[in-house]
Structure formats: C-alpha cells, structure tokens
Design a protein around this nucleic acid. Structure first.
Lengths: 338, 338
DNA sequence: AACGTTCTTGTAAACGACTACAGCGGCAAG
DNA sequence: CTTGCCGCTGTAGTCGTTTACAAGAACGTT
C-alpha cells in the first residue's frame, strides 16, 4: 500500500510518448497543441498521476503552506480566529499548519526560528505576550509574517489589532446606561497583551463615566478557575456589575454568584470580553464585547497573502472595531423584583 | 528581507573548505573526525545555516508533517482531540496540518485524495459520517491513515473508537441511581457516526434499566440551537431527567429549562455527552459522559506514528473507555425542596 | 616492504518537477 | 527557392539535500 511507488512526471511522459517538459507544460496550462494536451491528459488519468508537492516546492521555492501560531489550540478565545484563518487560507489554495506555543514564549520563538527551514511560506502569530525576544524573532524572520496584537509602533510589521479600549468603553457605557454604577473590573495578568490593553481601556472609561470610582481586581490567569478564585473577593465588595477581561473569567464569576445565590442579572450584571461561542451557550447568556476575532483572523490572513504577493509593500496595520453583544446577563433588573 | 537568499549546504562547504557530503554527514550525526566537526559547526554558525526542509523532504521522501482532519475546527467537541493530537505529534518531531472538511463529505474526500501529492506523511481523520465514499477514499490512500470512529469491522484500518454504548449506560445508571425514572433521550441526527452509536447505546440501556420506558427525540443537529428547538417538545412531556447525545444539545435544553423556570437539577437532571470544556464552565456545571476524546486523539496519533514506523504491521483498533464526570446538573434533588 | 584493515573524505548521481534554450517544421513574404 | 518568423517540442540544467561508491590516508601485520 504505502510501498507502491507513485507515478512520476517522466512515467507519464513515457506513456504519452512525449517529453517531460511537455507534460509539465500541459499540466501548468502553458501553450500546447490540442493533440499534445489530449495525449498527456489521457496518460495522466490512466496512471492516476498527481504532481509531487515536495519536488514542486523545492523547484518553485514555495510550499503553499502557512502557519498559524496560537498560545492554545483548545482555548475558545482562539477558535473564532482559527476558523476564520482556516477559511481564508484554504480559499487562497494554501494549507494551514497549526502550531501551538503552549503559552510559552520560548516555544513561540522556536516556531518562528524553525520557519527558516522554509517549510512554510509565511506565518500568522498571536503571541500571548509581546516581549522583546518575540519581536526580535519576528524581525530576523526571513518570511512574511503578520502579528495579531499590538507591536510597538516603531516596528515595521504587518499587524491586526483589536481596539480593546473601545470595547471596554462600549461595555461600560452599556452598564451605566442600564443603571449600574458600582462596577468592578476583573482583569487577568497585566503583563500580557490583552491584560495591558484592557486595563488601559478600563482606566479611561472609569475616569470618564464613573469619575474613577470603579474597583480593579487582577486574576492570576485568564481562566475560569482564576475567575472563581478572585470572585470571592470581588463579590464581597458588593458591586452591581462586574466587567471581566475575558469570558472565561466571567464564567468563573457567574459560578460563584450562582452558588452564593446572587441572581444574574437581577442582582448583578456580568459582562465578558471576547464573545466566545460559550457566551451564547451558558444560562443566562453572557453579554460580551466582541473584539472581532473572526474579522481579525480573516484580516491577518489577507494581509499575509498580500505580503507574499508583494514582499515590498509597506507594513500595514489593521484595526478591527469591537461591538457589544447584549445577552441576558446584563439586561436591566426586572421590574417588580427586589 | 524576504529577498536575501538563504545559505545552502554548498556555501557552508565552501566556507569550511570541505565537501558538501561532509557537511551533510556532520549535520546528520554520521561519523566524522573531530576536526571536521568543529570546522563545519563553525561555518554553519557563522552563516546561520538551516537545512532546507523542502529539499530534504524531496530527497528523503518524508515531510515530517501529519494531517488532522476534523469537521469543524471551532467546535468544542474537537478541541480536546486537537490538543492531544497536537501534543503527541509535536513531541514526535512532526508538524501538524489542520484541515477542516467543513462538515462536508466531499471536502473530506478531497483532502484525503489531495494527500497523494505527498505533502504529508500520514493523516488522522475524524469523519462526521462514515460513508462508503469516505471508506473508499481511505482505502485508495497510499499513505498511513488512522480513523477516529468506527469503520466496518471488515475494513482493515487503524482506528480509535469511543465506547458510546458504555458511556450512555454509565449515564443512565447514574440517573437511575439518583432516582430519576422519567428519562428522555435527546439525540442528534441518527445518520451520523455519533448519532447511531449513541442511539444504540440508549436503546440497550433503556431496555435494561427502564424496561423500554424511555422517550426518544431527535434534534436536527448536534448544536445548541437544535437542542433549544427540540427542548420545547421534550419538556412538554415533563421528564425528570434528560440525557443528551452531546453537550451542546444539553446546553440548549438547559436554556429552555431556565427560561421556563424549571430548576436544574432540582426539577430536572441534565446529562450531556463529550464532557467538553464548556461543561465545567456553565452554571450549574453539566454532568457529562467523557468519551475520552483526549485519550483517543493521543492514541490515534500514536497509532499513526507506529504505522509510519512499520507500514506492514496489522491494522489495530483501540477502544477507549468512557467515564462519567458528575457535576451539579444531575446531583440529587435537594432535601427539603419541593 | 608489501599488504590488508579501518577510518575519513570527496565525487557524483540521485530525488521529481520546472524552465531556459535550442531545434524543428511550416508558412508567408520576397 | 531563399529567408525569416512563429509556434511547438525536446534536451538538459537546476533547485538543495542525501548517499552509494571509491579514493586516499593511516596504521598494524607479516
């Protein structure tokens, strides 16, 4: 089975009684006589010939493969991204390699450096932390690369970024509009890309809307468990709304609220960020800021394809606007309650 | 940047003043004098040389890449699988290509057939439906392949399968043990791999434990929305427990229960299948049958690696035992309630 | 001193496809 | 009947590695 040798160009050529060059030309749509075309086609069909991707990529210098690097394949935060990238990449006729850095900077760097063996034509990376080593790895990369995140403005990299600050502002405005004023902000680690951006967004919105009265908390990680841990402290402070830096944290908070008998949304509004698939699944549905992860993935893929097509184009930054998906977790407290 | 030519073996050889063969030998750990080794190493370092994966794979006939085909990249049902496969594959030094058939048989077949171009060394596929065309595509494949699912016993394929029937039995036993007797079974489409297996499992368990009194429902798809749609009808029949063929359906049911004021688990126990990450996230936490998707993914990856190492080994089938993760959605109705 | 080992190293031929170049026939213009 | 052009096809070199083979060096044995 695995042993049977695949037919090669020259076998097709022999069978058709023509040269390998002619076969190659027919297959690549270069000019050839009608007679030639039909003979080659026949031989190709009868042998079940398929060009060898390995040989082809050696010769033409392209692999038709792109890499997507995410911190964690299984994290719902990245599934929207993955789906969108996969779709765009596939439509463009490329294959998609999925690499996970396991949330380790060293692994992410190893992946970027490994690309120098030329196994793919370009890379999209969504680094968890935008550290100096990552930026250096990106800059010594000889391949087209697109970053999902916000590298320093001075670095000439194609990048797609969310507008976290605007997203946080959206959520805060919504909470204030629905008459919530004791708003707690539960962030994850501040030394991460999303952590800093969301913190800055909250600080600004807090200043503007609450005159700086909002309370801030930092969970140990962007996970449900971390959300649960911090929720104990947060809920002790009796807020009427909690804005979480991502959906997972929000779920953690909702669970603790549930077990304490705090009703959502009646007693407490909860809002998340990322609008993962899960937000629509839980009861009550979680209001969440959609940072356009699908849009960002698609945009990143398109930027990468554009750069591959023209390596000399100037670096471009795309900012995707967020929107708010309102679900039950933040609808106004029902009349007659209380 | 992209333009600068990568150094090649012969450039390294020139710089070191030795032949390309020697460089290749040093790099591949074949015997070489100490002197030779140090000279080559120095030249490699000073040029920043990395072997070209394309040329290498042409010559050695391997790509060091494996493909994983799943119906939908973003579906939480597959994330455990993906994570496990990614980990095993990476540890073995292979890269992972992720392909999605978009839940279309035709696309899955196209991916399998496309493999004949040799862009990867093997494939793991988790087909949504185990149809004849898929089986044929698998059999004409010249590459090692492992199926996650249950192909007909007569077909000599490496496969990893869940024991859905045992899983359903586990769930049913748990419900009966916790004093639930009006049990409804909400399946997805029966013409799918999971659909048939779970239906069979329920029929058997129903016979054994409820003397055939269980009611059966079939949702239009394995999704939250389909679960929500069918739940209206299911709940009208006033069961005291609902066993759903996957977690997403269960979430749909829980939402409708929530909106109707039916308390889970007090009035209604809900159990899902797949034990996705989401099950631990929702409130109340969803009791779910874990069919060992991580274990299956890891097993599939190992089977594939074993077959690549020895193409002549007999086809092997691995069955992964399920277990039940009990969460709040099915804990006994509280004392003093009602 | 001649010979056989053993160990290193270099030469050159692959792997399978693409493509620059040259060769060939046919045809129209002179 | 040349000449020139054009369109098609084949020859052969190339992409960057790996590896079979052979040549050469170093050494011990007789």
């Amino acid at each position: 089975m695995t042993l049977s040798a695949r037919p090669t160009l020259s076998q097709v050529a022999d069978l058709a009684g023509v040269s390998v060059a002619s076969v190659s030309r027919v297959l690549n749509g270069l000019p050839a006589s009608r007679e030639m075309t039909t003979r080659v086609r026949a031989a190709v069909d009868s042998l079940g010939y398929t060009p060898d991707a390995r040989a082809r990529s050696l010769k033409v210098g392209r692999t038709e493969q792109l890499v997507l690097v995410v911190p964690d394949v299984g994290n719902p935060v990245y599934t929207g991204l993955m789906r969108a990238v996969a779709a765009v990449v596939k439509d463009a006729g490329y294959r998609l390699l999925l690499s996970t850095g396991n949330s380790e900077v060293a692994e992410e760097i190893a992946i970027l450096d490994g690309l120098s063996s030329g196994y793919a034509d370009g890379v999209i990376i969504s680094p968890l932390r935008m550290t100096e080593p990552i930026l250096q790895a990106l800059q010594r990369l000889r391949h087209p690369a697109v970053v999902i995140g916000t590298p320093p403005a001075a670095v000439p990299l194609d990048a797609v970024q969310a507008d976290s600050a605007a997203g946080v502002q959206l959520a805060m405005q919504h909470l204030v509009d629905t008459d919530r004023h004791r708003i707690a902000f539960v962030n994850g680690p501040v030394d991460t890309v999303p952590g800093t951006a969301r913190q800055r967004g909250f600080d600004r919105a807090d200043e503007r809307l609450l005159a700086g009265a909002g309370r801030r908390y930092a969970a140990a990680a962007f996970t449900v468990d971390a959300g649960r841990d911090i929720a104990e402290r947060v809920l002790d402070d009796r807020p009427d709304a909690v804005l979480c830096a991502n959906d997972l944290l929000a779920f953690g908070v909702m669970r603790v609220a549930h077990s304490r008998g705090i009703r959502v949304p009646d007693d407490l509004a909860v809002v998340g960020i990322d609008d993962t698939d899960l937000a629509a699944v839980v009861s009550p549905g979680l209001t969440s800021v959609n940072l356009g992860s699908g849009e960002r993935g698609a945009a990143a893929a398109r930027l990468l394809l554009a750069r591959i097509a023209d390596p000399d184009r100037p670096a471009e930054r795309v900012v995707v606007d967020p929107w708010l998906t309102v679900r039950e977790s933040s609808t106004p407290a029902r009349e007659g309650d209380r």
